[in-house]
């Protein structure tokens, strides 16, 4: 696992890059800007990449983080990559349901299921 400052850990599996958010709460504009810089530096690669965002540590987030996820997803798709989310707590899943972002993002229960069939997709 490669620690990246700030706010995330990155783990490279056989077929995906797993970005784990390390903070329990993601709220402040400054934190979100830092997260964006960190994640975009991983996404912004010449080759298309499969990205999994792991929310296992996250217990609270604001709608500004949803905006960050939208920006990340646009960047991933521009690069012809694929993006999946996983390990989202029930309270936060409810936020995705209310905002209907469950229709925008591919959400999986855990890292294993999120990375399992990347290769089988077109």
């Amino acid at each position: 696992m490669v620690p990246i400052k700030p706010k995330i850990n990155v783990n490279y599996t056989e077929n995906a890059t797993v970005v784990t958010f390390t903070d329990e709460k993601i709220l402040e504009d400054k934190e979100i800007r830092e997260l964006q810089e960190s994640v975009m530096s991983i996404v912004d690669q010449p080759a298309p990449s499969n990205i999994v965002l792991d929310f296992d540590n996250v217990r609270f987030l604001s709608s500004a983080v949803l905006g960050l996820l939208i920006r990340i997803s646009k960047k991933v798709y521009e690069q012809n990559g694929r993006l999946r989310l996983c390990n989202i707590s029930p309270n936060i899943i409810e936020v995705f349901k209310i905002t209907r972002l469950t229709k925008v993002f591919d959400i999986y229960p855990d890292i294993a299921s999120a990375t399992a069939d990347f290769d089988s997709e077109e």
Binding site: S63, L66, G67, I70, R71, L101, K103
Partner: peptide
């Protein structure tokens, strides 16, 4: 749905 903002009031 694909905009980065506008979800707070909802």
């Amino acid at each position: 749905l694909f905009k980065a903002e506008g979800r707070g009031l909802l």
